[in-house]
Design a protein around this nucleic acid. Sequence first.
DNA 1: ATTCACCGTGGAACCGCTTCCAATCAGGTT
DNA 2: AACCTGATTGGAAGCGGTTCCACGGTGAAT
Lengths: 335, 335
Amino acid sequence: MATTIKDVARKAQVGVGTVSRVINKSPAVSKATRKKVEQAIRDLNYAPNPNARRLSLGKTWHIAVVLPYLTLPSYVERLRGIQEALSNTDYKPILYSVGTPEQRDEYFHSLSHKNHVDGLLAISLSPTQEQAQRFLQNHIPVVLIDARHDQLSHVFVDDVHGGKLATEHLIDLGHERIAYISDYLDYPFQKSAAANRYQGYRQTLQDHSLPYREGYFVQGEQGRENAKTMAKQLLSLEDPPSAIFTSCDTQAIGVLDAAKEIGLKVPGDVSVIGYDGVSESEFVDLTTIAQPLYGSGHIAANMLLHLLASSSPTFKSHQLPVKVIQRGTTGPNHR
Amino acid sequence: MATTIKDVARKAQVGVGTVSRVINKSPAVSKATRKKVEQAIRDLNYAPNPNARRLSLGKTWHIAVVLPYLTLPSYVERLRGIQEALSNTDYKPILYSVGTPEQRDEYFHSLSHKNHVDGLLAISLSPTQEQAQRFLQNHIPVVLIDARHDQLSHVFVDDVHGGKLATEHLIDLGHERIAYISDYLDYPFQKSAAANRYQGYRQTLQDHSLPYREGYFVQGEQGRENAKTMAKQLLSLEDPPSAIFTSCDTQAIGVLDAAKEIGLKVPGDVSVIGYDGVSESEFVDLTTIAQPLYGSGHIAANMLLHLLASSSPTFKSHQLPVKVIQRGTTGPNHR
DNA sequence: ATTCACCGTGGAACCGCTTCCAATCAGGTT
DNA sequence: AACCTGATTGGAAGCGGTTCCACGGTGAAT
């Protein structure tokens, strides 16, 4: 059907080995022969079959990007960073979008076999200890983004610290009744970043001798709508919080929706602080804890490229900073 | 290195053909043998080498998604639609991000060879006539998103109509001095949607006997920052426009930035209408011309799946609607 | 003139799978 | 008992590359 290396060899009157050498820029080809072969390639509009090459070479030039469905802007930002880091190379990213924990396990399992992809980047998703072992044993380079691991390289931020920063920011503004709206702490995909932020929140309350109230902590499914519902519930308490910290910006926006619907002023009646620093946060003038999202993807991809290039892969743990970005949704406590 | 089908065959004491049959669920295997082989597969933790399989089968189970760098939220939304449509299938999307026209051509050229990918989805990017011919000749299914073509299937919206809707909306509000801020009309990637919107704009001005002013039309590089610059230039004219229509929401947000910086009220001093209806538009309460972005990706991916499944690929042209979403950035003309 | 090293080159073997074809075997027919 | 049928099965060939190995030819060294 398609033209093969044999056709080229015949047309150029050389052996297949020689054609292969030309294609792969081997120096062991005379100038004259090279010209002949190149001409034949052009005449036939030949391109090598990548699958044959992959089989023979045992190299795919594919990188699996394993990530949750693109429901959150933070995933997308990270993906952008990956994409741009890869764009200078011959590696192409294949998207493995996971919708359920079963799917995550299926992907991690099959990708841990040799000859599937050359390496993996996982966003906000950790392999189990067993899965990690298989990657290690099979020498498949992996870099985790927004996750920590003691054997797989990763880039991460200190979410406990982030939770602390958010809570302290609110306390500094005079708030004492501070609620936390969160993703499920035992998020089905990995030990959640939300859990660490929660820990920072609890810790900080305690450090400032503020009471922790059961009712001020609610967790639920990700997403703007769910956060809105949770916020309405919180804000209609008999003794509602004067400030709300959410585990991501998307949820914070949901809280803003709720406040608007109830008729509460932000930050007059209630302060809101998010987490992540996605670009949307700027549009709604949201105070937030920012982390380098694009940067995390970019750095992770480069780490993977290094692993791919090096003969002796080395473990690396790369920490990125978090910081408060103060904008218009947090203000002094009036009550 | 890795275990192969031969290892399994040896372990299960059968031939490789039989193992292959078990893997591919061929019915021509006795129950007993099947059990034996399945056990061996499990014992060895065997997974077939996908590259060998692809070579033998001539099928990759890969779909190329060719798209510009993920700079615009509209690309991301479309990608999301693709991803979700593909998530029920065995096909995996490979991202071919294009940063320059040369890169676009390189990708379209190499992907038009058999055995590279099973099919293509292109977002806001058209192949040349010659490239299209090669896809057709080689029977490689392609679906274009946000583009039209007379032989390649595609999903699109009527951007002339969209431009008209936007302009009419402003005219209905009493505006007469209406500017248009645009991507380059001869966008390097394809005949630009912006050009069609421009045409709708011109047309509508004429239909309403309003003069077209040279100075009210500016084009420039994509992006929020550039739009901001262009808007400042426009708004500092001696006789500035009372309303600005932009070729995408991202630019409209840049216009909003400019107005804020200059100290103009929106919509009091100047009305702003965008295009696309990305989720960000809601955050900034932007009036806009909305088109189904997620839907375009979803539908296109399903069209491609049909082409892939059918033995006689058929051309299809799918039009999606546009509509005005009136929000807070447009209001009556006061001057 | 003979030997030797080295450069270019052709082609077989191999990568690991699928599939076709031939062979075996059990059971049913006549 | 001889024959036929259909169900299973083993294994070779083929998919289209890469690479190793052997070989012929050239020019320099002896």
